[in-house]
């Protein structure tokens, strides 16, 4: 029994049918971790991208170093760091939140590069026209450059969203009951790993295909000239 749901291990079919609602619980946690992690990465990634492009090296170099560090160290280490080290400083967060933050922080480093590429792809003439019209630099960034950069980076962002979902199982090591963790618990207790693990694989496949479709639709819906401002 898990989440108050009993399973029926008579044979593989009954097991599959009976654990399906249990796995959905795990899937729900995986989706939440993915979305929260992605949200953190999208926001923090933009902040990192802006800081990396800062005019003073005092800001840009440390940011680059941090971003490089985040990309070059394993997610597991970052997760352990947050999970075991932060409490020593009196910061105790629930496992789920810690996990989502770890995902978000690592992926913010990846997304900052995506933002950078998108921002650099906006022609220099746009910056020059904005300067000639005397826009403040922040307004130029938020109203002229970003709306043109974002449509260009939607496909790359979508790929990272899928990547995050595939990294969620790492959170199982800090007891988060995400999809894979739920499946292995079922396996441990029923001595049948094949069924739950196959189902996890299937659910991931469906999730990834749906996400890819969604991103493709979004990409086609966004005009390549930038997010329209009427």
């Amino acid at each position: 029994m898990l989440f108050g749901i009993e399973w029926d291990a008579t044979n593989s079919w009954t097991l599959a049918v009976s654990i399906f609602p249990i796995l959905l619980h795990g899937l729900w946690v995986t989706l939440q971790a993915t979305v929260l992690g992605f949200f953190i990465a999208v926001v923090l990634g933009l902040v990192l991208a802006v800081l990396k492009a800062a005019p003073t090296r005092l800001v840009s170099w440390p940011t680059r170093l941090i971003s490089e560090f985040l990309r070059d160290t394993p997610l597991l280490i970052q997760l352990f760091f947050l999970y075991y080290v932060l409490p020593e400083f009196g910061i105790v967060l629930p496992a789920f939140l810690t996990g989502a933050i770890a995902l978000g922080v690592q992926y913010s480093a990846y997304l900052s590069e995506v933002y950078r590429a998108g921002i650099e792809a906006v022609p220099i003439g746009q910056h020059e026209a904005a300067r000639a019209l005397n826009f403040a630099p922040t307004r130029t960034f938020t109203h002229i450059i970003l709306p043109q950069a974002i449509p260009r980076i939607v496909p790359a962002m979508g790929n990272y969203l899928v990547s995050i979902s595939k990294d969620v199982p790492v959170l199982s090591v800090v007891t988060v009951l995400e999809l894979l963790n739920v499946a292995t618990i079922i396996g441990d207790r029923t001595f049948n790993y094949l069924v739950p693990l196959s189902m996890v694989g299937g659910l991931y496949l469906i999730m990834t295909l749906l996400a890819a479709q969604g991103v493709k639709r979004l990409d086609m819906a966004l005009p390549k000239t930038g997010i329209p401002l009427k």
Binding site: G125, A129, L133, F135, A136, P147, P228
Partner: peptide, 28 residues
């Protein structure tokens, strides 16, 4: 005091013609 017209126009592609013209007067 100065304005410039560029060889490559450099209109803002995500704004309508009207918005291209009013954006700076309104916000600057």
């Amino acid at each position: 005091r100065l304005g410039m017209v560029f060889q490559s126009f450099n209109l803002f592609p995500h704004m309508t013609v009207l918005r291209n013209i009013t954006e700076a007067p309104v916000h600057v």
